[in-house]
Amino acid sequence: MATIDNTSRSQGTGASGSRPCWSCNEEVNLRSPFCHLCGVIQPPLPSDHFVRLGLPRNYDLSDDNLERQYFGFQRTYHPDRFAQKPPREQAISMEYAANINDAYNTLRNPLLRAEYMLRLQGIEVAGGDGDTVADPELLMEVMELNELIVGANTIDQMTSLRERINAEVAASEIALGVVFAENDFDRAANVALRLRYMTRLSEQAQQSAGSLPGNRKN
């Protein structure tokens, strides 16, 4: 499993040079995943999720575009395409496919995407489990919403509360698009932290809604 790597965006963008094909020993361009001579798949190089899916490194991305790229890459690299190949080629294709799945699952989630883009800049979003929140205003807001969720005891109350929280989630996502476009990573880290809390509240609200009486739709 390739780890995140800030320095080498090698595969798609900055890569130059070549490496010998493991199968026929021909020198293969680092950018090429297949040997131009024998056609055999080459082990994946360290890369990032945007490069893996052939996407520009922008926070704003459309679901349709992401999905199209994902399916396109899996059509080429999925192990099903290598079912009749020797074990080593199958193993390499599995590495690609696992990386592509990881890229897709990270980038399609607005919170994971923000955190991932910050990590590419060497910034870890604070406020993980056990961390204290630096921003007391955010903390107050979260605690207030949390109490509202615990206190809600009708479907209507919960529905309007969920709408309020989901609006906060959506607003944070829009804000992230703006600050990432400006390369303002410090502000991005703050907004990402807000998005993390709002996302968690949204999940809590959904769970609580499920346990309210009379909710099952049959």
Binding site: M1, T3, P79, M94, A97, A98, N99, N101, D102, N105
Partner: peptide
Amino acid sequence: NTSIPVSKA
């Protein structure tokens, strides 16, 4: 419900 193949550390 994680897509396979998958590799996580």
